[in-house]
Design a protein around this nucleic acid. Structure first.
Length: 302
DNA sequence: CTAAGTAAACATATTACGTCA
DNA sequence: CCTGACGTAATATGTTTACTT
């Protein structure tokens, strides 16, 4: 997608956005790479570095029948023993091509029905997917990791993705796939929230502009009226609220009363000029401080 | 070098489940 | 107890990118 690499913009500075480049700098794992997979003539690929020699590993694990929310010791052991964090492992039971993923998913679905996260879910027998609510502790740990890793540079994120995700899953007794899904959904929620906030922000901005426009129109009318009766002009409050910064040449709009001196000097040419010189329209966005918002976790309903 | 195939990771939309008022 | 709203885990699908053949 085109927005993959500019995900640092509106979409929340999610560090993952650039992880596509992970193939470019996986050097830290050199010592973990199977020699057989190395090519002397080219840089080691990420795939080389992290790919499990046996792509069916995770599948096999799940085919043995695993608790859907418990990281099987075999998974952790596999990772620990080999020191290899296969990209596939992050997909856990659903790695591989979509079709394969689906197939595997179907395979594990039945198992899942007979599995459970905890001891309180033993009804089993239902072939439909079972949605399990993460515990508060699990959610908070994931949340912390999200905060910690959504702004890191891609390289670090890649390492995190490839390695720490497994560790996180292990720590939380979740499948790596669940961690992955959680982050995916978390990003979606964050983006949605960001969109809502931006929408509200634009709405208010538009309202302010409308109000400002109304005010300026009124001011124009007043100035035109003054033009017809100059003697009244001297006793009036300064009508304008626009000032210009002498250093940056920026026109600043201030709703409150401006300095009388500044206003008077600004008005002087206007009073004498039949064609009042308005400041060059400025980009309202440029003059408006945009505060980068940070988003906390949406209030959990659980 | 190029093209086709593949894998990984993502965004997005949707579905389905759990919780709560 | 029932029900609808809501939050969210899980799934489906399509896209992009890097790598391999």
């Amino acid at each position: 997608m085109g927005d993959k690499n500019d995900g640092l913009g509106l979409s929340l500075s999610l560090g993952y956005a650039t992880q596509r480049n992970h193939h470019q700098q996986p050097s830290l794992k050199l010592n973990l790479m199977p020699l057989a997979s190395q090519n002397k003539h080219k840089k080691p690929s990420w795939t080389d570095l992290f790919q499990s020699p046996d792509r069916t590993c995770d599948t096999r694990l799940f085919q043995r029948g695993l608790d859907m929310n418990r990281v099987p010791a075999a998974v952790a052991d596999y990772d620990d023993e080999t020191g290899v964090s296969s990209p596939n492992s992050t997909l856990s039971s659903f790695s591989g091509k979509r079709s394969e993923r689906k197939q595997i998913g179907e395979e594990t679905e039945a198992e899942r029905a007979s599995c459970s996260r905890g001891s309180d879910d033993e009804d089993g027998g239902d072939a439909s997917r079972k949605k399990l609510r993460l515990s508060k502790e699990q959610s908070s740990v994931l949340e912390e990791n999200f905060k910690e890793h959504n702004t890191l540079n891609p390289y670090v994120v890649v390492l995190w993705l490839q390695k720490e995700k497994l560790a996180l899953a292990k720590q939380l007794n979740l499948r790596p796939r669940q961690v992955e899904v959680w982050f995916q959904n978390r990003r979606a929620r964050t983006k949605l929230k960001q969109t809502e906030v931006d929408c509200e922000y634009l709405k208010r901005f538009c309202e302010n502009l409308t109000e400002e426009n109304r005010r300026l129109l009124k001011e124009v009318q007043e100035l035109r009226a003054l033009k017809l009766s100059p003697q009244l002009y001297m006793h009036m409050n300064p009508p304008t609220t626009l000032t210009m910064c002498p250093s940056c040449k920026r026109v600043v709009s201030s709703a409150s009363s401006s300095s009388a001196a500044v206003v008077s000097s600004a008005l002087a040419p206007i009073a004498s000029n039949p064609q009042p010189q308005r400041p060059v329209p400025i980009n309202p966005w440029a003059a408006t401080p945009i505060h980068h918002r940070t988003f906390d976790a949406p209030a959990s309903s659980s």
